[in-house]
Design a protein around this nucleic acid. Structure first.
Lengths: 198, 198
DNA sequence: AAAAAATGTTAAACTAGTTTAATATTTATG
DNA sequence: CATAAATATTAAACTAGTTTAACATTTTTT
């Protein structure tokens, strides 16, 4: 049973999509788990099978793919009130393509695969909730593809900085470069050009 | 009421995820609509509000964003047994960022927004079905992002050709170039290099 | 079957972003 | 507080992919 205080962010978040009764809330709390990770620790490792969907209570994670040349490609960050997982591995219980690693000390609420299935049966509202969450994630992902094709590196950086100012502050620049799909050297150049022009 | 024959592909497809009773199937058929479009026609236009999720019975569509320079960026194609929509516009009833246009004469089954909500209430299995569909779409989208960052244009082309050989045959090359995020001239060069080396 | 429209090819000049490598700056640690 | 480790900057040489423009081929229309 997760302490209600620790899960308050999650409950508020769910409350934006569906209204749970006190009993449903209690049942939810009894099925999920809370865990702390330290900066640098892996929540999911490429090659493992992913058993959890994770909600970030505090801290920051990066989800990335390591390619055959050993290069990291960051797909997303997750801070307070974001979800992270390797959905592909989670839904088909196959080897994960992605790593999720903590960029800061991080507190999570974790939904185990088997338990989430039971929760869908017991509280259909939660299935609605997750459907909506995933729909939004898909929209964000498609828009990211468009930006990667239609914007220059400079424009993508400015978009990111504008859309996620908190993240831009908390994360080393070389990770932002990886997220933008460019080298850290080129991001450095872009930033120096921007400061000159202002 | 959609003729069961016309919806057979859809019913088979849904059957891979959830089992509907004959009554549920009937109710479903009575709520969806069937429509034919001609090559070149738009199912969704950027700027409009998207009211439908569409299942392709036959034909082929492209979903693309037109940027401020008038350039098309193709996000996905949809052939038989695929879904297409502008999910962002559909879920929040805001102006669509994407166009969906027919590349061939196309037959669709269309799920209206208001009706899909009612169907979720009436047949919770359908909510499960759509949750799973969207989860898969998200996985595909995230993998596409990885490929756009970690592979060269040549590798992306070979991947596409290998993964979707049917689509590669049916679609003009310049659209494939757009899907891959490169110019048609460069794709032409890639293809000539590949044929030389084999 | 001719003309027009759409699609595909080739090649040269160009540019956005990479690579390499050296140095500077900031942050963490004994 | 000194040293190491991690992060960021700069610049020159380079390359993957773009641009432009002219031409070739295929498909559609009359």
């Amino acid at each position: 049973m997760v302490d209600k205080k620790k899960a308050q962010n999650l409950l508020n978040y769910i409350g934006k999509y569906v209204i749970l009764t006190p009993e449903e809330e209690l049942s939810l709390l009894s099925h999920i788990s809370y865990r702390k990770y330290l900066k640098g620790q892996y929540i999911i490792q490429q090659g493992d099978v992913c058993k959890y969907e994770c909600f970030v209570i505090s801290g920051c994670t990066k989800m990335f793919h390591m390619d055959h040349l050993g290069q990291e490609h960051i797909i997303m960050f997750a801070i307070e009130d974001w979800w992270t997982s390797d959905m592909g591995s989670f839904i088909s219980q196959t080897e994960a393509d992605f790593n999720v690693q903590c960029v800061e000390n991080t507190e999570l609420i974790m939904f185990h695969r088997d338990i989430i299935e039971k929760l869908y049966e017991e509280i259909p509202k939660l299935e609605r909730f997750f459907r909506q969450i995933v729909e939004r994630a898909l929209v964000a992902s498609q828009k990211r593809i468009v930006r990667s094709f239609s914007l220059t590196a400079r424009e993508r950086y400015l978009f990111f900085k504008n859309q996620y100012p908190e993240i831009e502050q908390r994360i080393p620049q070389y990770m932002i470069a990886s997220y933008l799909g460019i080298t850290k050297e080129f991001l450095s150049k872009i930033k120096s050009q921007i400061t000159l022009n202002s």
